[in-house]
Design a protein around this nucleic acid. Structure first.
Lengths: 252, 252
DNA sequence: TGAATAGTGTCTATAAGACAATATCCC
DNA sequence: GGGATATTGTCTTATAGACACTATTCA
C-alpha cells in the first residue's frame, strides 16, 4: 500500500509539520487545453508549435505544468491567456491522461480541459501569434468512439500532433457530441446574438452530420433557453433571420 | 510560462538525459475510488476508516498515491484489490479534483474513479474487513447538480466524510445518472442473469425516482442488449419472471 | 422579377405514459 | 382459491422527421 504513513499517530499538527512531500518520486502534472470554435461550418482547434524538446517542431495543444499550489482550472485559464490571449472563456475539465509513456521526459499526467469561444474571438487569436495554427477537426460520424481524431490543415493535410494530443482531441469531440444533447453548450460557440441557422451550423459541425431543420428549430425553441431579440440580421442576400439571445446567459 | 525549457535546443536524446524532473516542486497525485452497488433498492458505497492523519478516524473513499510509473487505472485497480478485495471490476475515470486546499498535508491532486459491482460481490467486501463500512448515497432528485452528496449509515445518520469526498460522491452520482440514458451501465450492477424488475430497481436507485414500468420494459428490450435465457427466477412468492442476460457482454 | 433562405402549417411515424386484461407462480 | 407480480395488448399523448407553402430580403 503506497500511502503516507505514520506508525505512531501523534496529533495532527505535529504530523503535518513532519510530512515530507518529497519523500518519494512524484509524477509531474500538466494541463493541456483544447481551444475550439466553429468557423465556416467546421470545428476548429488552436494548435501551437512546440519550441522545445520533446517533439520539437510538432504541433500540440497549448499546455504547461501546473504550479505547485495552482488550482487546475487556474492553470488552464493561465495557459489560455499566455498562449492564446483569451480570457474569461467557457472552460471545462475533459479527462486526465496518465499513460506513463505519453511523455518521454518523465511521468507527466495531463489534465485536459476544453475551451469554447465564438468565431470572432477565435479568429483574433489565430491571426495574432507566430507559431500558432488552426486545425480542422475531422471525426467521422461512425468513428465517435473517443479514439484518436485527425486534425487537418487548410489543404487537408493531417497534422502530426505531439504526444497523445490526437487522442485528447478525439475524447473531446466525443464529449462535445454527448453534451450537445442535454446542455446548452452550443451557445458558447456563438456571439451574444445569433440566428437559429447559425446555431444549427454549430450543432452540425460538432456532430459531423446534418440535422433536421424543422425539428431542430422546434427543439431549440422548446428548451426555453432562447429568446428573440426583435432584431434581424442584415446584409445577407436573402430574407434576414431573427436574431436570438441565450436567456439564462450572463453574457452581454 | 511554466514549461521545462532549454534555451539552446540540442538533440532530443541529450535533452532527455539532462532533464531533471525534481527541478521544481511537484504536486502529489492520488487516486480515490467510489465502489458502488445497488442493494435493497438503494445506491450503496464502500467507505474505509482513515487510520492516519489527516482526518484520522473519519470515513473516506478507498484511495492512495499513484506510483511514479504506475498507470492511473492500474492504481485504481490496485486500491480496489488492496482495500476492497475486488478484482476485474468495471472501472471508469470520473473527474480530477485539484483544489490546493483539499488535503492539508501538501498539494494532492486526486484522480477519482468509480467502480460498479453486483450486490453479491459488494456484500462480500463489506462484511470481510475491519475499518470498512457501507454508506447509502442519498441525493435528492432535484439536487442533481453534482454538488456534495450526503452518505448515510444504517440508522440514517450522515457520515462525516474526509477531505472533499462528499463532493466526489456527488459528482459520481450525477455522472451515473447521465450515463444511464445512453450506456448499458446498469448491467454492471447486476449478476450475469437478472430479471427486468431488478434492472428497473437499479435504474431507480441511481436516478432517485421511480420510472414507468411499461416504457422501461419496452425501452430496455428495444436496445437489443438483452436476451432472454429461457429460465425463470424461483423461490419468489408470486409468478416468477424471465431471467435475461446482457448480450454484448463478455461476462459469464 | 428572381434567387435564396426564413418561417409556418400539416401529416405521419415513433416513442412514452396510462391503464386494463390475462398468465403463472407460491401459499 | 387468493395473493402477488409478470407479461401482453391497446389507447392516448408528445415528439421527431418529412414535406409543402408562404414571407421577405437583396441583386
Amino acid at each position: 500500500m503506497i500511502t503516507s504513513n505514520d506508525q505512531h499517530p501523534r496529533d495532527e499538527k505535529a504530523f503535518l509539520e513532519s510530512y515530507d512531500p518529497a519523500a518519494f518520486d512524484h509524477p509531474s502534472v500538466a494541463v493541456d487545453v483544447a481551444l475550439l470554435s466553429v468557423v465556416a461550418g467546421s470545428l476548429k482547434i488552436l494548435l501551437v508549435r512546440r519550441a522545445d524538446h520533446p517533439d520539437l517542431g510538432k504541433w500540440a495543444l497549448p499546455g504547461g505544468f501546473v504550479g505547485f499550489m495552482e488550482p487546475l482550472e487556474d492553470a488552464a485559464a493561465r495557459i489560455l491567456r499566455d498562449k492564446a490571449r483569451q480570457d474569461h472563456v467557457f472552460l471545462e475539465q475533459l479527462y486526465t491522461f496518465g499513460d506513463p509513456t505519453r511523455d518521454p521526459r518523465t511521468r507527466v499526467i495531463s489534465v485536459a480541459y476544453f475551451a469554447l469561444v465564438d468565431q470572432s474571438r477565435f479568429d483574433r487569436v489565430a491571426s495574432v501569434a507566430d507559431g500558432v495554427a488552426v486545425g480542422r477537426v475531422h471525426v467521422d460520424w461512425s468513428g465517435e468512439t473517443g479514439g484518436a481524431a485527425s486534425t487537418l490543415d487548410e489543404s487537408g493535410e493531417e497534422y502530426d500532433l505531439a504526444f497523445d494530443h490526437a487522442n485528447i482531441i478525439g475524447v473531446c469531440v466525443k464529449r462535445l457530441r454527448g453534451k450537445l444533447n442535454y446542455t446548452p453548450i452550443g451557445f458558447e460557440l456563438l456571439p451574444a446574438r445569433f440566428t437559429l441557422r447559425r446555431l444549427q451550423t454549430v450543432h452540425e459541425a460538432i456532430l459531423g452530420k446534418s440535422v433536421n431543420k424543422d425539428s431542430f428549430r422546434r427543439r431549440m425553441l422548446a428548451t426555453g433557453l432562447l429568446e428573440p431579440t426583435g432584431d434581424r440580421e442584415d446584409e445577407v442576400g436573402h430574407r434576414p433571420a431573427e436574431l436570438y439571445r441565450f436567456t439564462s446567459s450572463n453574457r452581454q
